[in-house]
């Protein structure tokens, strides 16, 4: 999409600059648009760098994302292997200098920092893939529902309502009761039971866009409904969907952690922020770091995604006022 946009900007510049047609209305509109695009692109970048919390959030999120992809290549410790000589080592700042474990170790001597990185890998990949899967399903169904309405639209939207009626966390418990816990089941469930918000947004916006001139223009030159919906309507939904996508990644990360905390998420011994926290809860009086470190990791990750999402929404909103 960005390539297309750049081409458009180039075209607009040409038409705005050429005096061949005189200063037609089209040229003015095109010039204004190209300027707006320029400012937006400019602000989009600056908007993130100049707002300190968003900058910090960007660093934190990149940190976890980087290790989500590279942790198995970089880390030489096995996150799941017990080392019984090293149990309950405190973090480095508690002046136990014999420790090589920066955030301490847990009850069976596993390094907490390594487990947090590995747990983040599971959480982030699950959150991002789940949110993307849900977005794909929800957007396609929402576009269809908004375009077709009638029985098809109503059916799709009732299924979307169903996901409000039994929220994802509770649905996941139901599914865990039947199939038992597991990573694949969670991934499938996240995609299949979280597309409701995407469908609702796409449906609403499609409804409001479908009577606009550009849709009529596309139809009048013989574009098929599928082409109109995916090529002409879908690009307009991009910004709100991107914001929703970022928030839903955060929600899915929390839901995965909650399920693992309750003992029905990622099965042990695989590290997961939620299960580490549940384990650490029993040692609060002796070894606070067991629970505090993974808890801080989840909170930081969720805070950065929320902050980035908020900032993204503000930056995108600014475009409307320019």
């Amino acid at each position: 999409m960005s390539d297309n946009d750049n081409d458009n900007i180039e075209d607009n510049k040409k038409s705005a600059a050429s005096t061949e047609f005189g200063v037609s209305e089209m040229a003015i509109i095109a010039a204004q648009r190209s300027m707006r695009e320029k400012i937006w692109n400019h602000r989009m970048v600056l908007g993130f760098v100049r707002y300190p919390p968003a900058f910090v959030a960007l660093i934190i999120a990149s940190f976890f994302l980087f290790f989500a992809f590279t942790a198995p290549l970089i880390v030489s410790w096995d996150p799941n292997k017990p080392v019984l000589s090293d149990t309950l080592q405190p973090p480095v700042w508690s002046f136990a200098f014999n420790s090589v474990h920066s955030l301490g170790t847990d009850t069976v001597g596993r390094d907490i920092f390594v487990r947090i990185l590995m747990g983040g890998r599971v959480s982030i990949l699950l959150g991002v893939t789940g949110a993307t899967g849900a977005a794909t399903i929800g957007v396609v169904l929402g576009l269809i529902a908004g375009w077709k309405r009638g029985v098809v639209g109503a059916t799709i939207m009732r299924w979307a309502d169903l996901q409000i009626a039994l929220p994802l966390l509770l649905m996941a418990l139901t599914v865990a009761a039947v199939f038992g816990p597991g990573l694949h089941i969670l991934l499938i469930l996240f995609s299949l039971w979280f597309w409701g918000p995407y469908a609702r947004i796409s449906e609403g916006l499609t409804l409001s866009l479908k009577n606009r001139e550009f849709v009529e223009a596309a139809r009048s030159i013989g574009a098929t409904p599928r082409r109109i919906v995916f090529r002409h309507v879908l690009p307009h939904l991009f910004s709100p969907l991107l914001v929703l996508w970022s928030f839903s990644c955060a929600i899915l990360i929390i839901i995965e952690a909650s399920l693992s905390f309750l003992g029905v998420g990622i099965p042990p011994p695989t590290a997961s922020w939620g299960s580490m926290l549940a384990e650490g809860r029993q040692y609060l009086h002796r070894a606070y770091w067991l629970a505090m470190m993974p808890g801080a990791a989840i909170s930081m990750m969720v805070w950065s995604i929320n902050t980035l999402g908020d900032r993204l929404r503000d930056v995108i909103d600014q475009r409307q006022y320019l």
């Binding site: 955060a250 939620g274 926290l277 809860r281 505090m292 909170s299």
Partner: peptide, 15 residues
Amino acid sequence: SLVGQSVPSFFLGIL
């Protein structure tokens, strides 16, 4: 409130 929204309830309880 932004911080409060980011701390999941299970961690808040433990804190």
